[in-house]
């Protein structure tokens, strides 16, 4: 799926490097030193138990939360995000779990919310629907019409529209927070396929999920977090589901696990 395998990536392919990221909320240390790398065209699974700090880390990367210490490098350049739009300017997109869609607006209006194509003072609906249709067709998103109201779509369709919206900003990095939670089986398939398609376009995708079987379907690599730290980084080929569970729960496994940090 990825143009180059994770092992053969050139340094120029590195999109994001996080090192030693920390974040405290008062006395609570949410992040206690996280390292993470993401390459172009790669799908990285970010796993860990509840409270491990996955969502906080992704909010840091998306500019919604400001970290205390550590370094974020995007394309090798150190950056610091004070607002979500700073992160957007560095072409980092995120789809939150609640999707941020408007139920009573149609598909095209949701895709272009906040940046509707205009002709004079008026919305150019024709252009908006044509561009929306092109975006959806490119990503093979299964909706019957761009005029459909979002509220009438299934959970999976809504998820794919939300991802399509994020992708239409042409991000280099796309963060997906639990995109397959609470979806029917067939819908999970279409979301996973979409993730693969997006990565194939050269976008680096970070996937947060509790559905471990999904990780084996689309991910190239897994980063494991435990109590605010990144504790393991492994190619998916070296793992099976039992090893992965062991990495997440930090219970000793009979087999060898490879860890970048102890």
């Amino acid at each position: 799926m990825a143009p180059t395998g994770p092992g053969t990536a050139l340094p120029g392919d590195l999109l994001v490097e996080l090192s030693g990221i920390t974040k405290s909320y008062g006395p609570v240390k949410s992040l206690r030193g996280v390292d993470l790398t993401l390459r172009r065209g790669e799908v990285l699974g970010l796993v860990g138990d509840n409270g491990a700090g996955k969502s906080t880390l992704m909010k840091v990367l998306a500019g919604a939360v400001q970290h205390d210490d550590g370094e974020i490098r995007v394309h090798g350049e150190p950056v610091r995000f004070s607002t979500p739009s700073d992160a957007q300017a560095e072409k980092i997109g995120i789809v939150y779990q609640d999707l941020a869609l408007c139920d009573t607006l149609d598909v095209a209006s949701n895709l272009f919310l906040g940046r509707e194509p205009k002709r004079g003072a008026f919305i150019d609906r024709r252009a908006m629907h044509e561009q929306a249709a092109r975006i959806l067709a490119d990503l093979h998103v299964k909706v019957t019409s761009t005029h459909q109201e979002i509220g009438t779509l299934s959970g999976g369709q809504r998820q794919t529209v939300a991802i399509a919206r994020a992708v239409s900003f042409a991000p280099d990095v796309l963060i997906l927070d639990e995109p397959t939670a609470a979806l029917a089986v067939a819908e999970v398939e279409s979301v996973l396929k979409l993730i693969g398609d997006v990565a194939a376009q050269g976008v680096g995708v970070i996937l947060i999920t509790h559905r471990l079987q999904d990780l084996f379907r689309v991910c190239d690599r897994i980063t494991v977090m435990y109590e605010g730290q990144s504790v393991d980084d492994a190619a998916i080929a070296d793992l099976d589901i039992e090893k992965l569970v062991g990495l997440i729960t930090r219970t000793p496994q009979p087999t060898r696990t490879e860890g970048s940090r102890a």
Binding site: A108, H129, E130, A132, A133, R134, L136, A137, D138, V143, T144, S145, T146, H147
Partner: peptide, 12 residues
């Protein structure tokens, strides 16, 4: 892709 785009954008 071509006809599919038109089908998607067709006015109801």
């Amino acid at each position: 892709a071509g006809p599919s785009v038109q089908r998607l954008a067709r006015q109801r």
